[in-house]
Design a protein around this nucleic acid. Structure first.
Length: 154
DNA sequence: GCCAACGTTGGC
DNA sequence: GCCAACGTTGGC
């Protein structure tokens, strides 16, 4: 069982969209480091926080579950799609995606400033300067700390 | 909108 | 293989 944090711009796809859809595919990963984690380490049943980036407010908006093994990201094959990549060959796909399921929407968006207040989260990758990976792993302690912060609001 | 940080591209 | 130029991410 692994724990993740997955970023999405809510203007593209938000926790509310996933709550409506129940289950969706996580497309658009176009970074090799993220691709490798998604393809090689993500397992069905892993849990992830859904993070809203480039938003107001930005922060953790809810919890989701990985619902499939990785499979080829078909949006890379579609010339009309915003995530099209001519270098991804259907016979040897460069980019991969997983399915995700809605679990829970947080009572509030947990901002970076709020996360920074907790010493247990000092090594959280998204708090590190310059970290731009759209998917990052969390330790179990980090995962539980964030859940505990959230539960204090409910 | 600004800009720091980082990834990718391509000339050499 | 180096590295400058360029593009993208994402907080603020």
């Amino acid at each position: 069982m692994n724990y993740w944090l997955m970023k999405s711009e809510p203007s593209v796809y938000s926790i509310d969209d996933l709550q409506r859809d129940k289950k969706w595919y996580w497309d658009g990963v176009r970074n090799y480091q993220v691709r490798n984690m998604l393809r090689d380490q993500m397992k069905i049943g892993d849990l992830a926080f859904f993070y809203h980036s480039n938003a107001n407010p930005t922060g953790i908006a809810g919890m989701i579950e990985i619902a499939s093994e990785a499979y080829p990201d078909h949006t890379a094959f579609d010339p009309k799609h915003r995530y099209y990549d001519p270098k991804s060959d259907p016979n040897n796909p460069r980019w991969w995606m997983v399915d995700v399921k809605f679990k829970q929407k947080f009572s509030h968006v947990m901002t970076l400033a709020e996360l920074r207040e907790h010493p247990q989260l000092k090594d959280l990758l998204i708090l590190r300067k310059g970290n731009r990976l759209s998917i990052t792993p969390l330790t179990k302690v980090e995962w539980q700390t964030i859940l505990k912060i959230e539960s204090a609001f409910t």
